[in-house]
Design a protein around this nucleic acid. Structure first.
Lengths: 201, 201
DNA sequence: GTCTATATGGCGATAGAC
DNA sequence: GTCTATCGCCATATAGAC
């Protein structure tokens, strides 16, 4: 049934856009319907309720987010190169979904149980990112720190500029969108350089 | 009029708590009234509308956030020590308001204009944090990078663990709150060390 | 200033025709 | 599967007594 899939996809795509902008509580079913070019009642036909629709979108986003960097984590590379590779993949991925970080951070608190469910349903192995920095087969000076400190730092450096985009853009770039985009495009190189510095004596 | 101030303060405090947990759209005036131990109608007596009440809370939070680190920025210290001092102050401040980062990130998108207004009404000089790293009177190897790259990195490393607390806690700490708190308490030292590494050859 | 009671509008959800 | 019409509730906001 081509028609079915097409409509369901249209709804999910529209819902994603609206939920990105407004969040679960701020979003309106009418707005999603308009965005999808269909009637409001159809949303309830495909997904029973707003809550269910949101869960479907949230699951989809979370899954995509984690899967997209999994490959980089298992690459057979020495520590520093692997770290560079991870940063590269991560930023590239966010660049193509720039609203995801803020969306996730905003919605996490609303229903932590939902996040747990998504994590369970898929077999996420986030430990592997820790392994990248916890691997002791390379000379480095991080032993006195929990390797997760490095992981969180990497994630913070990569994600924060997107999660807090509007704030940063206004404060440090006078609201100039183009200038901030340029800044972000130069950031990949900077973060790579800094991660390597952090990993070496 | 002691009574007036007391009630208004009670409302603001209650509103802050509820808005932290639920956000602007998720919050209910009834819940704020209950939290403040007063009647719902009183909220409208003191603040005309939910929107106005939220703006008052948001302004207050933003102002407090920026002011609290301003002192550290003007300290007369050499680059590395100043950077350490800033990190220290920042984390200490967030530790006493751990829900603020996520709150700000979540609400920024809703109404960027409001943020602009707050920035205008106060005379924020965020440039000073850039000056910390842009100061060329110290030997360092950052010249080929925009000093704002350092600023955003520092902020990301400091803020991200709080903004994405629930997510990180679940993924990397198996949901163990105590363990994550311990992790955070060790983080101040880690970030300081890393910032210094990033600033030196 | 603070309360109770009520108006008003909007939103999620459903009924039912096609 | 898709639409129009409508229900029923709930949240913001106001009226008005005290």
């Amino acid at each position: 049934m081509k028609k079915d899939i097409s409509t369901e996809e249209k709804i999910l795509e529209a819902a994603r856009q609206v939920f990105y902008r407004k969040g679960m509580d701020g979003a309106r079913m009418q707005e999603i319907a308009d965005e999808a070019g269909i009637n409001k009642a159809l949303l309830h036909y495909y997904f029973r309720s707003k809550e269910k629709l949101f869960e479907a979108v949230f699951q989809e986003v979370i899954k995509g987010f984690f899967r997209s960097i999994e490959k980089a984590l298992y690459a057979e590379l020495p520590l520093t190169e692997k770290a560079e590779y991870v940063v590269d993949r991560y930023i590239t991925m966010i660049e193509s979904n720039p609203f995801v970080p803020q969306f996730i951070i905003s919605e996490i608190n609303r229903n932590p149980q939902m996040l747990r469910n998504v994590m369970m349903s898929e077999k996420f192995t986030p430990q592997s990112l820790v392994d990248v920095f916890g691997n002791p087969d390379v000379e480095n000076h991080l032993f006195k720190f929990d390797p997760r400190q490095m992981v969180i730092s990497l994630l913070g450096m990569v994600i924060f500029p997107y999660a807090a985009r509007n704030l940063i853009q206004m404060i440090y770039f006078d609201g100039d969108e183009a200038e901030y985009s340029k800044f972000l495009s130069e950031r990949k190189e900077f973060v790579k350089t800094m991660i390597i510095k952090m990993l070496t004596a």
